[in-house]
Design a protein around this nucleic acid. Structure first.
Lengths: 144, 144
DNA sequence: CCGTATCCCCGAGGATACTG
DNA sequence: CAGTATCCTCGGGGATACGG
């Protein structure tokens, strides 16, 4: 599916050949469990490795390293090593990384603004009892 | 970590007690592999189950069902069943779902606009050879 | 057509220990 | 401090078959 042509229903059913699936790969990356949090935290960067680790609740050292490498590879984050003892490494958003900030924060803000409404929707959905019978084409089906 | 207070570094290291982690749960959901695609496709909704299935490349019946249920539970999508034969079910964004559209599409558009730059960054990153020695505090370390 | 129920696999990711 | 390396688990998600 080509999200770039989402406004063209005809395009939806086409097999996803060509460069269109690059969009998906990118969304899969920046939409993954940790990238959004790292990018959001680097909004106030630069931060050192362990500052990021402490700041992002629940992230393991391994995943922080891997995700930072991915973001660096994407050209979204720079890694600056200071050859001091003990070593110090700063991570910072690149210019492209900063352009990502706006849509990311829009999503974060949406989540903040709607968390109460979503919690209420959950309650409504979960409390709703199953109907003990349904009517289809004038035929009654009893729940078992 | 509370993304709602991302602009407050002091808040970063606080343990994530309280309702703050709701934001994370929401982002984990709408940022998952399929939700963004479904929401994006429903921008031009309503769509029937199999239309969605055909439109979203690679999604299995199971994951389409599960993700739609999740979105319905979140109050983002409505499920309308027409008791005809064969049965027909339409999925459509709710008002809240439509408010999500704006930040989601912003992200999608960002991915589209930057896919070339990211591909170039990958090339640069991957082509860069490892240095065969590094200098730390005047001391040379040879690569092994 | 629109699902649910089962089985099963594979790899994302945590825990732990070790290095420059 | 800022990472690798290794092991291991646990559940996301595909494939398949069946039901209303």
């Amino acid at each position: 599916m080509s999200l770039s042509h989402i406004e063209l229903p005809a395009d939806m059913s086409a097999p996803d050949a060509g460069g269109c699936l690059a969009t998906r790969e990118i969304l899969d990356r920046i939409g993954d469990k940790w990238s959004l949090y790292i990018v959001a935290m680097l909004a106030n960067g630069p931060w050192r490795f362990n500052e990021l680790k402490r700041g992002i609740d629940g992230i393991s050292q391994r995943m922080l390293t891997l995700t930072l490498r991915g973001l660096e590879r994407d050209g979204l984050v720079t890694r600056t090593m200071y050859p001091t003892i003990p070593p110090r490494v700063d991570y910072e958003l690149t210019d492209m990384g900063r352009t990502l900030l706006k849509p990311v924060m829009a999503l974060v803000n949406w989540a903040n603004e709607n968390q109460v409404a979503i919690a209420e929707a959950h309650k409504r959905f979960d409390d709703e009892p199953e109907p003990d019978q349904v009517l289809i084409q004038g035929v009654v089906y009893q729940r078992r």
